[in-house]
Structures are given as structure tokens and as C-alpha cells.
Design a protein around this nucleic acid. Structure first.
Ligand SMILES: [Zn+2]
Ligand SMILES: [Zn+2]
Length: 219
DNA sequence: TACCTCGGACAGTCAACATC
DNA sequence: ATGTTGACTGTCCGAGGTAG
């Protein structure tokens, strides 16, 4: 074998055309990071590469699902407070603009109210994201693939590099505009057939936590 | 043995802030 | 206008668990 997934992250991907960032971490570990991991690797929190399909997807025979994950827009307008000038050695010189008061979390609340809805995120993805505001226990989110009628011309003119399972389209493909939840689509309701969490044999469902019951403290 | 699961460290990006 | 800084966001390392 060339590599084992057990050491998935330890793959150096010698054949991958990755030449984006080659940084040396403080631990002396070469840390190469791609700009955009594919959805499979992203969900599995595993190393991806620039190739499509990526090595990992190829290895598991999921090259058809190997598409770039959608990056969500960075939140804008967030206040940051005064800067702490540094002397170049990491030592904070002074807080420009404001007196050197103790950093009091209570009183230094951001001037902007907590934004209930940032821009969009993938709930439960790699256990990093909370459930979306407005999430209801009954709401069902579907990752990435959405079963939809296939346009007549679809599949004919499509590049071979981006082939999707029959009748399956990436959610992002279905949305002509930026939507709050790029990779998850709220179930449109009964009568509309959707892929029940499309997954190939040995599919990647890693890092996707089921919705936890909201704390009863919620009113 | 191979793959999955998961928490968290690491790293890149970018807009607000500071200064000229 | 330009540089600096902080925070946000994404990637994936690595240990532990599970199944064949
Ligand atoms: Zn990948
Ligand atoms: Zn992939």
C-alpha cells in the first residue's frame, strides 16, 4: 500500500500538485494546507489536496463526490475595540485609544449585538458549528446532495471532471444565489423526494453530529 | 488492519483599526 | 492611503474506538 488511512493525516501526498502553502509549524512539522478541501475530506476532517478528485476520494472510490466545499462569507461589521500595540517582541505596549484598564469581559462587550445569523454555516460539520438559529427539532438538513430532476442537457455537457451521481446535484449547484446554509438544505417538505443522506458504500458521515436537543433553558 | 469519530491545534484570510 | 492587528474561519493532526 502506498499509504494507510489510519495515518491519513500523515500522508504527504507526494503525487498531489499541492504547492500552495508549505509552512513549518512551531513544532517543526511541515504543515501543508489546501485552500479548499473537498466535501468528503472536510466532513471527515482529513487531509485533502488540490486534485479533483482528491487522493482520498479516489482511494475510497468516491471521486464523483469530490467537489470543493463552499466557503462561507466572512462576517462583516464586527467591532474590534482598540488595538494593543506591540513592541515587536510580542509585548503589548499600550492600548491605543483607551486607557490601560483591566480587560473586563463584562464591560467590554462588543458594541455590536451578537449576530444571530452570521452568514451561513454547515451545522454539525466536524462538530464545529452549532445548529442554525431557528433550528427546530423536526428540521432535517441534508448535506451537499439534493435529489432533483435532472435537466435534459445536464449530464451531457457536463465536464467529466465534475460528474455527480445520477440525479444528484450539489446543493450549491442548485442555488443561483448565496444562501445561508450552502451545504445543507432544509427539507422542502413531504412530496419532495430527496436523497436520504446520500452516501456511497463506506460513506463519510464522520464528524457530523446529530442535532442535540436544545437546552430547556431556552424559552 | 482499515476505517471512523472527534477534539483541538494550527494556519490563512480579511476587515476594522491606527497612523501618517 | 497604507500598514497593523485581531478575530474569524477552515484544514487536518493524532488519539481512541469500532468493525471486519
Ligand atoms: Zn479531499
Ligand atoms: Zn475529495
Amino acid at each position: 500500500m502506498g499509504f494507510t488511512d489510519g495515518a491519513d493525516g500523515a500522508n504527504n501526498l507526494p503525487e498531489s500538485p499541492v504547492n500552495e502553502f508549505t509552512t513549518l509549524s512551531s513544532a517543526g512539522t511541515l504543515h501543508i494546507q489546501v485552500k479548499n478541501a473537498c466535501t468528503n475530506c472536510q466532513q471527515s476532517c482529513k487531509k485533502c489536496d488540490e486534485a479533483r478528485p482528491c487522493l482520498r476520494c479516489v482511494k475510497y472510490g468516491r471521486g464523483e463526490e469530490c467537489i470543493d466545499s463552499a466557503r462561507r462569507e466572512r462576517k462583516k461589521g464586527a467591532k474590534r475595540g482598540p488595538y494593543k500595540k506591540r513592541d515587536g517582541k510580542g509585548n503589548i505596549i499600550a492600548s491605543s485609544g483607551s486607557p490601560p484598564q483591566e480587560d473586563e469581559p463584562e464591560s467590554s462587550l462588543p458594541t455590536v449585538p451578537p449576530v444571530p445569523i452570521p452568514v451561513g454555516y454547515t451545522p454539525g460539520l466536524c462538530a464545529q458549528y452549532p445548529l442554525p438559529p431557528g433550528h427546530k427539532p423536526g428540521d432535517v438538513y441534508y448535506p451537499l446532495y439534493y435529489l432533483a430532476p435532472v435537466p435534459q442537457h445536464a449530464g451531457q455537457e457536463r465536464e467529466s471532471a465534475t460528474q455527480y451521481p445520477p440525479q444528484l446535484f450539489p446543493a450549491s449547484f442548485m442555488t443561483p444565489y448565496s444562501q445561508p446554509y450552502p451545504q445543507y438544505i432544509l427539507h422542502p417538505g413531504p412530496g419532495v423526494q430527496m436523497a436520504p443522506h446520500y452516501s456511497a458504500p463506506g460513506s463519510v458521515t464522520a464528524c457530523v453530529k446529530p442535532p442535540e436537543p436544545q437546552d430547556s433553558s431556552e424559552t
